[in-house]
């Protein structure tokens, strides 16, 4: 009987160890309970056992070790003005001022180019879900260009992303997606809420004003939408994703 209890205890402790170091085979960050969630403006992201960082012109891959050390294992030079990185399943979506790049992680130590979509010169964070990528482009002094819009691309089994739709916006920064709801941080234009059940026919269903919105993270813990706004952070309840309800702010 004691043996059985010890076996169970060992199994339980092994399982909890997996929670810390993640034993996930597929290496998808969203499946690892111990990996955090970043926003769409991030230049660092973790997928599986790897930290991916985009600096000004390169994608760098670091193996994360259980003792905390990092091994720099590869550098892929991408081109000028890289700004953001977003992991989704076995891919990395990378935003630059000229294009959106998609790299696949068949070999997580050496991301491999898969496809890209050039676009007008602008700042452009990207998020992805299922077979679609959502990109915002913003014009202005540091970004260049004259277009402010949301672009929706189909990115499955194609040699290049197919542009399905565009929506004109005020001056969009980051974005976040939860189920069929897309949140776009449209600067002083507010938080835009889109229904993307049918991505090619995505519809704007609401706006939350009162702040200048830069980025947001739909976070399953506590059903919240965490938004970076001018001044600090604002939290919304998104138990109903289409209807964010203000909860609190940090400033």
């Amino acid at each position: 009987m004691k043996k059985v209890i010890y076996t169970i205890l060992t199994l339980v402790s092994l399982a909890s160890l997996c929670g810390i170091t993640s034993c996930s085979k597929d290496g998808y960050s969203e499946m690892s309970p111990s990996t955090g969630t970043g926003g769409s403006l991030a230049r660092f992201t973790i997928s599986g056992n790897y930290l991916y960082a985009v600096d000004q012109n390169a994608l760098k891959t670091y193996r994360t070790n259980t003792d905390g050390s990092l091994n720099h294992v590869s550098t892929v030079v991408l081109g000028a003005d890289i700004e953001t990185i977003y992991p989704y399943k076995d891919k990395l979506f990378i935003g630059s001022r000229e294009a959106m790049y998609i790299y696949k992680l068949n070999n997580p130590e050496l991301p491999e180019f898969e496809q890209m979509a050039s676009h007008v010169r602008a700042c452009d964070p990207v998020v992805a879900k299922d077979n679609y990528a959502y990109v915002t482009v913003r014009s202005g002094n540091t970004c260049g260009g004259t277009v402010n819009a949301l672009y929706i691309y189909q990115v499955d089994n194609l040699n290049y992303p197919q542009l399905l739709n565009t929506y004109s916006l005020h001056g969009p920064y980051g974005l976040g997606i939860k189920d069929n709801t897309l949140y776009v941080c449209d600067g002083a234009g507010g938080l835009r809420i889109f229904d993307v059940s049918n991505p090619s026919g995505a519809t704007l269903t609401g706006t939350r004003a009162g702040y200048t919105f830069y980025d947001c993270i739909p976070y399953d813990y506590d059903n919240v939408l965490i938004c970076m706004v001018d001044g600090g952070m604002v939290i919304y309840d998104i138990s109903n994703p289409q209807d964010p309800v203000f909860q609190s702010q940090t400033f």
């Binding site: 969630t37 813990y221 965490i226 400033f251």
Partner: peptide
């Protein structure tokens, strides 16, 4: 917060 930057969430921390 003086000049707030990027955001991140992990467990029950923001």
């Amino acid at each position: 917060v003086s000049s707030g930057g990027k955001i991140y969430a992990w467990q029950d921390f923001v």
